[in-house]
């Protein structure tokens, strides 16, 4: 039986973890196996963790304004390590102008403040299972 594994990571020096933990909790309650690595992860650490844990999706939570640099670095390293096929979700304080830039870098989806948890769960399912309904499994 396939169980999806998701890495929730906090790259950089950002200490805002309320959102990351709430999202991780919701994903657990939606039936996913969530690996949480705590604060202050470098892109290198995140990518190594993603490899060893063989995750199906990487979620980055960034509220420190350094999202462009950090996401770019994570995705570059993912390419180098041959895991660029893993979808990357980014959440946090992302100014509207930066959303297209993140998508261009290779981020799969972007979520800002006020996003309902149910929407996040739904989009994770969508991307992982190709499911588009909101109903749970």
């Amino acid at each position: 039986m396939k169980k999806y594994r998701i890495l929730i990571a906090k790259p950089g020096l950002d200490g805002h973890d309320r959102g990351a933990k709430v999202v991780a909790h919701a994903l657990r309650d939606a039936g996913f196996e969530v690996i949480y690595t705590g604060l202050r992860q470098t892109p290198e650490q995140i990518v190594k963790t993603a490899i060893q844990e063989d995750v199906d999706l990487i979620g980055l939570s960034i509220l420190s304004g350094a999202h462009l640099q950090l996401s770019k670095k994570v995705i570059e390293l993912m390419k180098k390590e041959g895991i660029a096929n893993i979808p990357v979700f980014v959440g946090g304080i992302i100014p509207p102008d930066d959303v297209p830039r993140l998508l261009e870098i290779g981020v799969t989806r972007v979520f800002g403040p006020g996003t309902p948890l149910s929407k996040i769960v739904q989009e994770v399912r969508e991307v992982l299972e190709g499911v588009t309904s909101t109903s749970g499994s």
Binding site: S64, G65, A66, L68
Partner: peptide
């Protein structure tokens, strides 16, 4: 190195 991208940011 850990300060990269974070200098003066917040």
């Amino acid at each position: 190195p850990l300060a990269e991208g974070e200098v003066g940011r917040v």
